[in-house]
Design a protein around this nucleic acid. Sequence first.
DNA 1: TTTTATTTGTACGTTAGCGTTCATTTTGAT
DNA 2: ATCAAAATGAACGCTAACGTACAAATAAAA
Lengths: 212, 212
Amino acid sequence: MEIVDNKLVLHSDRPDSQRKIANILTAARCEFFANGFSATSIEAVAARAGVSKVTVYSWFKNKENLFGEMVKAECSQLRENFVVDNLEGSSLRDILLFAAHGMLDFFMRDEMVRFERMLAAEVNRDPKIGKYFLDNGPRVLSGDLNNLLHAAIERGEIQSEDVDASAEMFAGLIRGRIDLFLRYGHKITMTKEEKQKWVHRAVDAWLLIHRI
Amino acid sequence: MEIVDNKLVLHSDRPDSQRKIANILTAARCEFFANGFSATSIEAVAARAGVSKVTVYSWFKNKENLFGEMVKAECSQLRENFVVDNLEGSSLRDILLFAAHGMLDFFMRDEMVRFERMLAAEVNRDPKIGKYFLDNGPRVLSGDLNNLLHAAIERGEIQSEDVDASAEMFAGLIRGRIDLFLRYGHKITMTKEEKQKWVHRAVDAWLLIHRI
DNA sequence: TTTTATTTGTACGTTAGCGTTCATTTTGAT
DNA sequence: ATCAAAATGAACGCTAACGTACAAATAAAA
């Protein structure tokens, strides 16, 4: 194997190697999530991946490179997690309720909370890291949401002077400060009913603001 | 000097010592903000404070203790930075506008963004750290906001079935996802007018939701 | 079977940082 | 002026981790 321009090049495509690379990335994710960049050791990653330290170094240039690749891999999975389907035939309210539930579940996951915690700290070190995340997470959501809203406006179901601001309001109403409390360690437990109530309240409030 | 129960005890109150302790805390703030916990060295803190390493260790038990004290000091200043006054004689709308502006300015400060970034990462290591912040920041705001809203409800100016949820909505509408984009490194520049517009939109939306 | 890529273990050299010790010096209070 | 608290600098032991070198082993492909 060889590393050119920070990207790894395989000379042969052994399934074994692929598996090992995947294991290393998974292990790295686990360690970096738990300890952050500085406090994570390559040795620990190698051990967790069931691989020798040298193997890690032969597939990844160094610690920074490993971290970057891990974040990239993680971000490319973000997209898949919140899909706002158009749900043809549903009412706008139902679509928004669906999207809102998706959002809430998405960012309240323990995984996500830990990911964001860890990521935040690394932005100082390397701003690119933050951009990966924004581009693959929040900005994708913005896009989907904007399409949804534009379509609804076209159909005359709602009105808005500023679609971007409306999308931000939607996100803001759903989030409240839940993310903030979660990030700083306050355990928030919402029953299915509470979640339902929260989402309904937010969506209905948003609709009220944007009613014709 | 002596350290008992993780708190430092002075045997004499030299102004010199007080100054040095303050310097160390300031330097620690600076270093920790920039590098996070693990990547910050005590030596660097000492150097920045213009103090010997031994002096740091004689006032603070160890790195963890220094970090904790720094966060405490920082948090105790939070309260002073955002005040939600009742502003006797003003209309509810004006009060809310004032509070909203305060909030926005507060969490958009570069300082605050960096503080939150750094803090988030350390919550895994020590959950107490996050609690300091929540208790001195967001929860104080919740309290002030709740009082404000209760009073307005008493006066029959607005209605709400759930004041806590209404307060969260208010915060959510003001924040949108500004904090999120800032945290991950996207520079958001708002002119005075844009800020004005944003705040007005949010407050009016909130009032619409809560009108009698 | 032979060849080539990949993996491993072990051992290095190196650096950085934690936290301590100690002898010496500075400083403020009485 | 005296004395105790506080600060300094330099050295030390220790540990953890980065990244590398190399010889031996393994496994796939030809």
